[in-house]
Design a protein around this nucleic acid. Structure first.
Length: 336
DNA sequence: TCGCGGTAAGTGGACTGAGC
DNA sequence: GCTCAGTCCACTTACCGCGA
C-alpha cells in the first residue's frame, strides 16, 4: 500500500453544479457544504494560481504506468473529478464510454497539468493510455459508489426518486435498470448451476430424470411459457412440437400398456401363490381337526370307562345299603 | 485445442478528513 | 474519539487475442 494513500484528498472538488474551473466559480466557505469530496480540484486550483496560472508539472513513470512526484496526487484527483463530471454512466464499462468523452477528459487534464517523462513534456498515445487506465479505475470506483447508493433503496421507485447528486436522472435510471437486469441474470445463472447439478445426479435419482422434470424442480411450473428461457430448453417450432407431442404420447401409451401387462402378470402369479397357501392351510386345518376329534373321542371313552366302574361300585354299594336298611327296618319292626 | 500474456472488471481493505 | 463517506490501490478473476 502506498504511503501517500489518502493524501489525494487534499485535492478537493468543486461542486458539480458549478462544474467550471474558472476562478470566479471557486466556492466560498460560506456556500460550501463541508463534506469530503466536495472540494475536489480546489487545492489543484490554488496550486495553479500559485504557479501564476501555469500548468502543474507531473512526472509519469512509463515502467509502472503511473504518475509520481509532487503533483501526482493532484493529477489523479483531477482525473477522478473529470471522470465524475464528464464520463457517461449510461454504459456498463469504461471501454464503452464514448471516445469524445474520453478526449474531453484528457484535454481538460492537459489544461491544468504538464505531463512529463523525465525532463521532456510528453503528449503521445502511451501517455494518453496511462491516463485512460487511471480514469478507468476511477470510473469503476464511481460505479461502485453508485451501486452502494442503489443498494441503499429497496424498490426501483425509491431509487428513481433519489438519484445521486453527481449524476443526472437519465443515467441513474439506466443504471438502476442495468443493476436489476444483472440481478435477474445472476438468478438465471443460479438456475443454470442447479440444472447442471441435478442433471449430473439424474442417473441416480429416480425423481427427475428428464430435462423438463429437472427444470420444473428448479424453477417450478408455470403455464403458458417455459421458465428459465435463455439457459433452459427452448420451445420447438409448431410442426416439430406437434409431431413430437404425438410421438411422445404414443410412446407414453405404449409404455403404460407394457407396464400394465407386467402388473397383471405379477398379480396373477401372486393369486396362484395365495391359492396354494390357502390350500395348504385347509389341509393343515383338516388334519388338526381330525387329530382333535380322535383325541376328544379317546378322552371321552376313557371318561366313560371310568364312569362304568364307578356306577358298578355304586350299584353294588346301593344294593348293599338297601339290604341293610331292610334288615334294620325289619329288625326295628321286629323289635317293636 | 491449449497455453500464455495483456487488459479490464470486481472486490476488499486501508487511509483520510469532516462532522458529531 | 468515533463514525461515515470519499478515495485510492492491490489482488483476484474473467475475457480475449495470438501463437504454437
Amino acid at each position: 500500500m502506498a504511503s501517500s494513500k489518502g493524501t489525494n484528498h487534499q485535492v478537493s472538488q468543486i461542486p458539480s453544479s458549478q462544474g467550471s474551473t474558472n476562478a470566479s466559480n471557486v466556492p466560498t466557505s460560506s456556500k460550501i457544504r463541508k463534506s469530503l469530496g466536495k472540494f475536489k480540484g480546489l487545492e489543484t486550483f490554488k496550486k495553479i494560481r500559485a504557479y501564476n496560472n501555469a500548468k502543474l508539472p507531473v512526472q509519469i513513470d512509463m515502467e509502472f504506468r503511473r504518475p509520481f512526484g509532487e503533483n501526482a496526487d493532484g493529477l489523479v484527483g483531477e482525473i477522478a473529478r473529470l471522470v465524475t463530471l464528464c464520463a457517461s454512466f449510461d454504459v456498463s464499462y469504461w471501454r464503452d464510454v464514448p471516445e469524445d468523452r474520453k478526449d474531453k477528459i484528457y484535454e481538460k487534464l492537459l489544461d491544468k497539468f504538464e505531463l512529463k517523462v523525465g525532463d521532456e513534456v510528453c503528449n503521445d498515445i502511451y501517455i494518453r493510455k496511462i491516463i485512460y487506465e487511471i480514469a478507468g479505475r476511477r470510473y469503476r470506483d464511481v460505479r461502485c459508489t453508485l451501486y452502494h447508493h442503489y443498494q441503499s433503496y429497496a424498490t426501483d421507485e425509491e431509487r428513481l426518486q433519489n438519484p445521486p447528486q453527481d449524476i443526472n436522472a437519465n443515467e441513474w435510471a439506466w443504471l438502476a435498470m442495468s443493476e436489476r437486469n444483472k440481478v435477474n441474470r445472476s438468478k438465471q445463472e443460479t438456475v443454470k448451476d442447479k440444472l447442471e447439478e441435478l442433471a449430473s445426479q439424474s442417473c441416480d435419482s429416480p425423481v427427475a430424470s428428464i430435462p423438463e422434470e429437472v427444470l420444473s424442480s428448479v424453477v417450478g411450473q408455470r403455464f403458458g411459457h417455459i421458465r428459465g428461457r435463455g439457459c433452459g430448453p427452448r420451445p420447438p417450432s409448431k410442426s416439430v412440437a406437434t409431431a413430437a407431442t404425438i410421438t411422445g404420447l404414443q410412446s407414453q401409451v405404449k409404455d403404460k400398456e407394457e407396464r400394465m401387462i407386467q402388473m397383471e402378470e405379477i398379480i396373477s402369479k401372486q393369486r396362484e401363490d395365495l391359492d396354494k397357501i390357502q390350500e395348504k392351510l385347509d389341509r393343515q386345518h383338516e388334519e388338526m381337526s381330525s387329530q382333535l376329534n380322535e383325541m376328544v373321542n379317546k378322552k371321552f371313552m376313557d371318561m366313560i370307562w371310568d364312569l362304568d366302574i364307578g356306577l358298578d361300585v355304586y350299584s353294588k354299594n346301593l344294593s348293599y345299603g338297601i339290604k341293610f336298611v331292610r334288615i334294620t327296618y325289619s329288625d326295628n319292626i321286629h323289635y317293636k
